[in-house]
């Protein structure tokens, strides 16, 4: 199956939009974006909330490794949302009124996946749940002293 097949299939099944087959949009069906690493080592990305879609777009942002993140959040919707984002120390929250733009500075370890969402009403269930995905490996001195092992 190609990615186009997958997106066509989701569309045909009515899973990639609001109030089609189900009530909300199936989680994890948005697009994939990639962070850019600045000269200062900070990984930057932008996500938007398109009008009436109730998703963060891209819904999956991939970072090369854990570290410092600067996420720009733009609400292009005609309703108010927010984002509660993972961060070492305490989750961070930003309120996003209609047609607003803000920033979240996050510190997150990798590898692994973190989810964030708009914690108002049931935005999270309707589709406003998205992922920050960090690749990479743990430092060598945190690894097991053994030969390389097979992975799935």
């Amino acid at each position: 199956m190609t990615s186009t097949d997958r997106s066509d299939e989701l569309h045909a099944a009515g899973l990639d939009g609001q109030n089609r087959t189900a009530l909300g949009r199936l989680l994890g069906t948005g697009n994939v974006g990639h962070a850019e690493v600045g000269d200062d080592g900070i990984m930057r990305a932008t996500v938007r909330i398109p009008e009436d879609e109730l998703i963060f777009e891209p819904s999956i942002v991939v970072f090369p490794q854990g570290g410092e993140v600067e996420l720009t959040l733009i609400n292009d919707d005609k309703n108010t949302h927010c984002a509660v984002l993972p961060h070492n120390g305490d989750p961070k929250i930003i309120w996003l009124v209609n047609h607003s733009k803000g920033t979240a500075r996050l510190s997150l370890g990798g590898p692994g996946t973190y989810y964030y969402g708009s914690t108002t009403g049931n935005d999270e269930g309707r589709g406003l749940t998205a992922a920050l995905v960090f690749g990479g490996e743990v430092p060598d001195d945190a690894k097991q002293d053994r030969p390389p092992q097979p992975r799935p």
């Binding site: 984002a83 120390g89 989750p91 961070k92 929250i93 209609n98 047609h99 733009k101 500075r105």
Partner: peptide, 17 residues
């Protein structure tokens, strides 16, 4: 459309407790 409203910077959740 006008410029975006400035939503500022995300703050630690605990500051709202």
């Amino acid at each position: 459309m006008t410029d975006y409203v400035d939503a500022g910077e995300a703050v630690p959740h605990r500051t709202l407790s």
